[in-house]
């Protein structure tokens, strides 16, 4: 991808930065526990709320747990929840969006009716309700957030499918004798990829933040296990005494979002033959 982006400075930077950040995140998620100098749950009360020192490279939190270790193991939780939720929302959203947009008629009406009912609730409230039913586990969070974000995907996919299905190359495919399913998979869906990628990368950010909001309300990743979101929210009372407790997970989230978004842009442009 980087090689193909050569000669396009903006894209090349996007691709390089995006791949680097995403690669680092994956490495951290996989090897986090080995990188971490301490057990992320180990208490060290004397160094409570201490700033960076040789002993705790990035300081310690309100129970004296090592921040670096918690960030490293939180990466796995946060990245996994975000990736899985995006994938869940995308798969459901694309299936229903394509069905509604391509078949129209009563399928469209039913799908959109249910979809609009979902959209009528604020996403977080919906997720809260679902978690109350499913239970506050990682899988519960993934399913709840995934369902809460799915309606947006359905709307975006349906809109692009509806505009693509009117193009003449889709009609040409029909005249060729291709079945509706092949026409959809070969000509309609690939041309909807750009908005889907943009949406997916944006959603990645929303979900990390929603997970932290859920944690804040006590329904996120259950403590003491760390996630970037719950680190951010539990550090709130100590913002005056130990600002690094907020700044560090905040930085991790921002850099990850920036990287994922740039990667998304690069992939979108890379897949577009016109670029």
């Amino acid at each position: 991808m980087i090689a193909r982006a050569r000669g396009r400075p903006g894209l090349k930077f996007n691709a390089t930065f995006g791949v680097a950040v995403t690669g680092a995140l994956i490495l951290l998620a996989v090897f986090g526990p080995w990188i971490a100098p301490y057990d992320p749950l180990k208490l060290d009360l004397p160094s409570r709320l201490s700033g960076p020192s040789p002993q705790h490279l990035l300081g310690a939190d309100e129970f004296g747990r090592d921040v670096l270790s918690r960030l490293a193991s939180g990466a796995r939780t946060s990245a996994w929840i975000a990736f899985a939720t995006v994938a869940f929302a995308l798969i459901l959203g694309i299936v229903f969006g394509v069905l509604a947009g391509f078949l129209r008629g009563w399928v469209d009406r039913v799908v959109m009716m249910v979809n609009d009912a979902f959209l009528a609730f604020p996403g977080l409230l919906l997720a809260l309700g679902l978690i109350a039913v499913i239970g506050a586990s990682r899988e519960g969070i993934i399913v709840a957030l995934g369902l809460a974000y799915m309606p947006i995907v359905v709307r975006v996919v349906r809109a692009s499918v509806m505009s693509i299905r009117e193009r003449e190359y889709v009609e040409a495919s029909r005249v060729m004798g291709n079945s509706e399913i092949i026409t959809m998979a070969r000509h309609v869906l690939p041309n909807c990829v750009a908005p889907i990628i943009v949406l997916a990368t944006t959603m990645f950010g929303w979900i990390i933040l929603s997970e932290s909001a859920l944690s804040f309300l006590g329904l996120g990743v259950p403590p003491p296990a760390p996630s970037w979101g719950n680190m951010l929210s539990t550090a709130r009372p100590y913002i005056g005494q130990a600002p690094h407790l907020i700044i560090l997970p905040g930085l991790c989230i921002s850099i990850t979002l920036l990287g994922i978004n740039m990667l998304g842009d690069a992939v979108r442009d890379w897949l577009d033959p016109k670029m």
Partner: peptide
């Protein structure tokens, strides 16, 4: 019906929209 129609084809007006850009 699709199999029967295989012997017929169409050329559209606008070559800019009748070819899949991807």
């Amino acid at each position: 019906a699709r199999a029967q129609r295989r012997g017929m084809q169409i050329v559209f007006q606008d070559p800019y929209s009748s070819l899949d850009p991807r």
